[in-house]
Amino acid sequence: MKFSIRSKGDETSNKLKHQIKRYLNGFNLIYDEDEPDIVISVGGDGTLLHAFHQYVHRLNDTAFVGVHTGHLGFYADWTPDEIEKLVIHLAKTPFQVVEYPLLEVTIRFNHDEEEKRYLALNECTVKNMEGSSLVIDVVIKGEKFETFRGDGLCISTPSGSTAYNKALSGAIIHPSLSAIQLAEMASINNRVFRTVGSPLVLPQHHTCNLKPVNDVNFDITIDHLFLIHKDVKSIQCRVADEKVRFARFRPFPFWKRVKESFIMD
């Protein structure tokens, strides 16, 4: 089996990276940064997001496993004192693959520029780059649902529903559900302007199109990636055909992670 390791870059994470690499080489596993069968993320959820985008072109062939060196994460389920146990599992135990849905974002332009397609593990956010209110039509399944006016919109995956989406009072969705969620950022609601005011959960067969009302530039994020796009015709969001694959060697209950992250001391 071929493996690669992505480190957060701090002293503790780098030390663990070299330790894991040495142990796995000792079991005759091959270190391969180009075509790994498994990617080990050492750091936190942010480190795994970077690893995901580094290998987004290999989602059918690469699985991910996370070691957290800080706070407990939703993607990193191993601790530094469990490294030897993890290494033995990697070297000796066939792992179970757990798949989570992803968000596909397709940006289309008014003129001849080629459309751009992205995959997000957590979320995509859309804001007006000029800093004024975002004014954009929300079209669901080909029919206009509303004209949104406010700071911006966040479209998240189920596994990303515990991140920025939760800060926007979005629902927490179990990642076994193939869905996306649309949450508002400070919408304007008065006698003139009106939005639904609640997060929307869309199933796999529903597509959401965001169509700008004004000719503005957009500040768009795809997870940790910051993008600026001009002359945008539409931003299409849907559940992606691809999925992210996680290597599981033991139970990692989602609701237990939610409880430990947000409720337990």
Rank of each mutant, 00 (worst) to 15 (best):
Y55P: 02
C237F: 00
Q54S: 10
L16P: 00
K116D: 01
L72E: 06
A63N: 05
T12G: 12
E114L: 11
V97G: 04
R6A: 11
L168W: 02
I140K: 09
I173Y: 12
T12H: 10
R238F: 14
A91L: 02
L177F: 15
D231S: 12
Q54P: 07
T221L: 09
F254L: 06
K211W: 14
V42G: 03
D137M: 09
A240E: 13
L59I: 01
P80H: 13
H206A: 13
V42M: 07
G44S: 03
D215F: 10
F64K: 08
D10A: 03
E35T: 09
S234L: 08
V97L: 13
I188W: 14
H229D: 09
S187M: 05
L86P: 14
I173R: 13
I235C: 10
K233P: 14
H68D: 04
A51S: 14
I88S: 10
D45M: 07
D137H: 09
E35K: 11
N28Y: 01
I173N: 13
V244Q: 15
P253Q: 00
A63S: 12
Q96W: 05
I172D: 13
M185C: 04
K233A: 14
T69M: 04
S161K: 04
R250Y: 12
A51E: 07
F193Q: 03
V216S: 12
I235N: 07
S41F: 01
D265V: 06
I88Y: 15
H50K: 14
E143M: 11
V39Y: 06
K230C: 06
V105L: 00
H53K: 07
N189G: 10
A247D: 05
K8L: 09
N165I: 00
H57G: 02
H174L: 02
K2T: 12
K141C: 02
N190G: 02
E104H: 06
V213Y: 02
L48Y: 06
T106S: 08
E114V: 04
S133Q: 09
L102T: 04
S156I: 03
V192D: 04
D231A: 08
E33W: 05
P80V: 08
H206Y: 09
R250M: 12
I5L: 05
T125L: 03
E114P: 05
G150F: 00
S161W: 03
H111A: 11
K141G: 02
K211C: 10
L16D: 00
H89P: 06
R22S: 11
P101C: 03
L177E: 11
G170K: 00
Y118L: 00
K166Y: 04
G131I: 00
N165S: 10
L90I: 15
L134R: 07
G170P: 00
D215M: 04
I228Q: 14
H224M: 04
K17N: 02
L24W: 02
F193D: 00
F193V: 14
L168A: 13
S13L: 10
H111G: 15
F252D: 13
S234Y: 11
G46E: 12
L59Q: 03
